[in-house]
């Protein structure tokens, strides 16, 4: 059953096909990402009403919450890619791990920095050892560990495999870490959007937030395509199709110069 279900995915395990697919998707994803990010943020920052308690400083939520949510989303996608890459020995999935890791790390850093900037006016301090802040910091360390491990081997393919294993170990540990620190200390305000309850936010503030959320997801997808393309080129540089691609590019740019 699984075989036939995913048969349509098979061609994309071939680096060349995936390279061109990513190339085709990239402009659409990037365009949509820029559009939704601009729409969500301009709406959120300029037009949605101020909070009755937090005033205008709550507006950082339109960057903070999407980056925090997708920092975790990026980690799960990285771990899924790692799992696929290791179990079915699909090399492009392993390369995707390396493509996603730095993006996720930057998202985590954005969430931490915007969180600190939000914490200063609200709690009167840049940083507290609260459960969510601590889990997010640990998430950053996990990302950095995966990146460092992947780069520590002279044989790059081996480094990626080992880093994929670490990503999977990390995803098993992440909920444990999260609940441990939650049990340990909590000051952070409760979640703004939950699946099961009515959101604790007015619709006029919710819509721009949801749009920013979509924008960050699209940006993640677009950047992953971009980075995956360069990973594919790096690892396939000795293949004829890459040579041809480079030669074709070289020819066309020469013609332009002439």
């Amino acid at each position: 059953m699984w075989g036939s279900m995913f048969r349509w995915l098979d061609p994309y395990a071939k680096p060349e096909t995936l390279y061109h697919l990513c190339g085709r998707l990239l402009p659409y994803l990037m365009g949509l990402a820029l559009f939704t990010l601009l729409l969500g943020n301009i709406w959120g920052l300029a037009f949605s009403p101020a909070d009755y308690q937090q005033g205008d400083s709550y507006r950082i939520i339109y960057i903070h919450v999407p980056s925090a949510i997708w920092s975790m989303g990026a980690y799960s996608s990285m771990a899924i890619a790692a799992f696929i890459g290791l179990v079915w020995q699909i090399r492009v999935a392993q390369w995707a791990v390396l493509a996603i890791a730095p993006i996720g790390a930057v998202y985590t850093a954005i969430a931490l920095i915007t969180g600190a900037a939000w914490g200063k006016p609200m709690w009167g301090t840049w940083w507290v050892w609260d459960a969510r802040l601590t889990s997010e910091l640990v998430l950053l360390f996990l990302y950095l560990g995966v990146i460092a491990l992947a780069g520590a081997f002279s044989e790059a393919a081996r480094g990626i495999k080992v880093a994929s294993l670490l990503a999977i170990v990390g995803v098993v540990n992440l909920p444990i870490i999260h609940f441990s620190v939650e049990w340990w200390n909590t000051l952070h305000q409760g979640a703004t959007i939950t699946k099961f309850a009515k959101p604790s936010i007015d619709p006029s503030m919710l819509w721009p937030l949801l749009i920013s959320l979509l924008g960050f997801a699209l940006l993640l997808a677009a950047l992953t395509c971009l980075r995956l393309r360069s990973q594919i080129l790096i690892f396939e540089q000795h293949r004829p199709w890459v040579r041809q691609l480079v030669d074709a590019k070289g020819d066309s740019s020469q013609k332009e110069q002439n």
Binding site: V138, A148, L149, A152, N173, V181
Partner: peptide, 17 residues
């Protein structure tokens, strides 16, 4: 790995938390 020591601490310490 070419680099030991610190790298091992870097990847395992978060799991100790």
């Amino acid at each position: 790995a070419d680099k030991g020591g610190i790298l091992q601490a870097l990847i395992i310490l978060p799991l100790y938390i």
